[in-house]
Computed example of a mutant assay.
Amino acid sequence: MADAKVIPFDDDRARGSAPRAGRRRAPGAGSGGPGGAAARRRAEPAAAGDAVPEPGDVPAARDGAKVRAVPVPGQTSGVSGAGDASARGPEPADGPGKTEWPEDGDRAGEGGGWERRLASGLAFLRRRVTGDYEVDEFGYDRELTDQVLMSLLRPLYDSYFRVEVKGIENIPAEGGALVVANHSGTLPLDGLMMQVAVHDHHPAGRHLRLLAADLVFMLPVVNELARKAGHTLACAEDAETLLNRGEVVGVMPEGFKGLGKPFGERYKLQRFGRGGFVSTALRAGAPIVPCSIVGAEEIYPMVGNAKTLARLLGLPYFPVTPTFPLLGPLGAVPLPTKWTIQFGEPIPTDGYPPEAAEDPMLMFNLTDQVREQIQHTLYKLLVQRRSVFF
């Protein structure tokens, strides 16, 4: 297998159960109170001369709400007893003995929630089996990503790495944007965590489409999952197409140089290439959002690189860590470091003329500006960090 190439950047239940509190009743007239029908018959002669208010004089109570007794003409307001409306509380809608108290309503709501989730899950499975779902021209399956893939990554994001997100509002609420981030960690978990951060925390519920090296699309299973999750080949054509469609695109210009750098060079950005990602952003008129990720460098401390083995396997590097390959598969478990992902102020590109995408000096300057902003933010986050694991 040849060395992987990088982006040519270079490298109706609620209504039926509502208590009918809109009509004031004589004591004992409620069907749910002691005495039932007999109490109603006893109350009718006494109430014959009373003026009965029209329904709606008192606002109807919702499920589980307390009903305040309102004095009826000719009736003492302080009267209490088993048949008094204020003592009985809300009347049932389904007949005697069916009163639902607030906690009963809560339990019913929970049951309804589980039923809805079950029905939704069964409908999802039916669509998958029958093929009644949509993918775009890149193979992106939004429904599968939202309901399955993000659910699989979320425990790693929330509980294992305990990712803290800052500046998510810097990603525009609409339109295309290019997120440029540092790359590290031996395995590309940082890109996946960045994808979860945008998916779960952006106010507009945006999705991040990552650009990946061709090696990702040569691996069985990984290839299909990457396409389903919205990733595509790191090339200028695909990136520009996504940006022009108004997608948020993520790129890590360091490529394998950043992903496989030694532990001693952690948080030192590698070369960003000749600015291919800047040229793509300029042609699409999309803002560039710098992103700094702290915590990924320490998940697999790479203390060595078996280059001969890497060449035999067709890999850009073969990592040697304190636990891998010494502990075998157990050594592939990442260390539970504490992560911070910060999205910086966007750098606009829509103010440049169309020919600016071919200006090498402008591309160099913008590339250097993005790189310096990411590096400065990394140093600042490292100073603020209390510990690698906390």
Score class of each variant (00 low, 15 high):
residue 303 V to L: 13
residue 325 P to C: 01
residue 297 E to D: 15
residue 240 E to P: 06
residue 261 K to E: 03
residue 241 T to K: 13
residue 314 G to H: 02
residue 247 E to Q: 08
residue 330 L to P: 00
residue 312 L to N: 07
residue 318 F to G: 06
residue 255 G to Q: 06
residue 330 L to Y: 00
residue 322 P to L: 00
residue 283 R to N: 09
residue 291 C to N: 08
residue 266 R to P: 00
residue 326 L to G: 10
residue 248 V to A: 13
residue 302 M to K: 15
residue 266 R to Y: 00
residue 308 T to F: 05
residue 289 V to L: 15
residue 246 G to S: 05
residue 299 I to H: 09
residue 289 V to A: 15
residue 326 L to D: 11
residue 261 K to T: 04
residue 295 G to Q: 09
residue 246 G to F: 03
residue 298 E to S: 13
residue 298 E to Y: 10
residue 321 T to G: 13
residue 280 T to G: 09
residue 314 G to T: 06
residue 301 P to L: 01
residue 262 P to Y: 11
residue 272 F to W: 04
residue 266 R to E: 02
residue 227 R to N: 04
residue 229 A to S: 15
residue 231 H to P: 00
residue 243 L to M: 14
residue 310 A to M: 07
residue 278 V to K: 01
residue 253 P to S: 01
residue 277 F to T: 03
residue 281 A to S: 12
residue 230 G to T: 05
residue 309 L to N: 06
residue 326 L to C: 09
residue 270 Q to C: 09
residue 303 V to Q: 10
residue 273 G to N: 05
residue 251 V to W: 02
residue 256 F to Q: 03
residue 261 K to M: 10
residue 295 G to D: 05
residue 309 L to Q: 11
residue 306 A to S: 11
residue 313 L to H: 00
residue 320 V to P: 11
residue 267 Y to T: 02
residue 257 K to P: 00
residue 246 G to D: 05
residue 275 G to V: 06
residue 294 V to E: 03
residue 292 S to R: 06
residue 317 Y to W: 08
residue 241 T to E: 09
residue 311 R to E: 10
residue 322 P to D: 01
residue 237 E to K: 15
residue 265 E to C: 05
residue 280 T to M: 11
residue 227 R to Q: 08
residue 232 T to E: 07
residue 274 R to H: 12
residue 238 D to G: 14
residue 318 F to W: 12
residue 306 A to G: 06
residue 270 Q to M: 11
residue 252 M to E: 08
residue 262 P to M: 14
residue 291 C to E: 04
residue 331 G to R: 04
residue 323 T to P: 02
residue 280 T to S: 15
residue 317 Y to P: 00
residue 293 I to A: 13
residue 250 G to T: 05
residue 317 Y to T: 07
residue 236 A to P: 14
residue 273 G to D: 07
